[in-house]
Simulated assay, not measured.
Amino acid sequence: MLNTIIHRAESPSAAPPLLVAHGLFGSARNWGVICRRLAETRLVIAVDMRNHGGSPWTATHRYPEMAADLAEVIEAQGGRADVMGHSMGGKAAMHLALTRPDLVRRLVVADIAPVAYAHDQSRNVEAMRGLDLSALGTRGDADRRLAEVLPDAGLRAFFLQSLDLKSDPPHWRLNLDVLAAEMPQILGWPDTSGRFDGPALFLSGELSSYVGPQHRETILRLFPGARFAELKGAGHWLHAEKPRAFEETVRVFLDAAL
Rank of each mutant, 00 (worst) to 15 (best):
L136P: 07
L136M: 05
G137T: 08
G137I: 04
T138K: 11
T138W: 10
R139N: 07
G140Q: 09
G140T: 12
G140S: 12
G140D: 12
G140C: 06
D141I: 08
A142H: 05
D143I: 05
D143T: 02
D143S: 13
D143F: 00
D143E: 13
R144H: 03
R144A: 12
R144M: 03
L146K: 06
L146Q: 11
L146A: 09
A147S: 15
A147C: 05
E148V: 10
V149W: 00
V149H: 07
V149E: 02
V149R: 09
L150R: 09
L150H: 00
P151R: 09
D152R: 10
D152G: 05
D152A: 13
A153L: 09
A153K: 13
L155S: 11
L155Y: 06
L155G: 07
L155H: 06
L155M: 14
R156N: 00
R156V: 02
A157F: 03
F158K: 07
F158I: 07
F159M: 11
Q161D: 12
Q161T: 14
S162Q: 13
S162T: 05
L163S: 08
L165C: 02
K166M: 07
K166D: 14
K166C: 03
S167V: 07
S167P: 02
S167K: 11
S167A: 15
D168A: 14
D168L: 10
P169R: 12
P170R: 12
P170D: 11
H171P: 10
H171T: 14
R173G: 04
R173V: 01
R173H: 03
R173D: 02
N175C: 07
N175M: 00
L176A: 03
D177Y: 01
V178K: 08
L179T: 01
L179A: 08
A181K: 11
A181F: 06
A181L: 10
A181V: 02
A181M: 11
M183V: 00
M183I: 01
P184I: 01
P184G: 03
P184D: 05
Q185I: 00
I186R: 06
L187T: 12
L187F: 01
G188S: 01
G188A: 08
W189Y: 15
W189M: 15
W189G: 01
P190M: 07
D191A: 14
S193N: 08
S193V: 10
G194D: 06
G194K: 09
R195K: 14
R195S: 14
R195F: 01
F196I: 08
D197L: 09
D197C: 12
D197K: 08
G198V: 03
P199I: 02
A200V: 02
A200L: 02
F202T: 07
F202M: 00
L203I: 04
L203S: 02
L203D: 04
S204I: 01
S204N: 09
S204D: 04
G205M: 10
G205R: 09
L207E: 13
L207M: 14
S208C: 03
S209A: 12
S209M: 09
S209E: 14
Y210H: 14
Y210W: 11
V211C: 10
V211H: 02
G212I: 02
G212T: 15
Q214C: 11
Q214N: 14
H215S: 05
H215Y: 03
R216F: 13
E217Q: 14
E217M: 00
T218Y: 00
T218S: 10
I219Y: 00
L220M: 15
L220F: 13
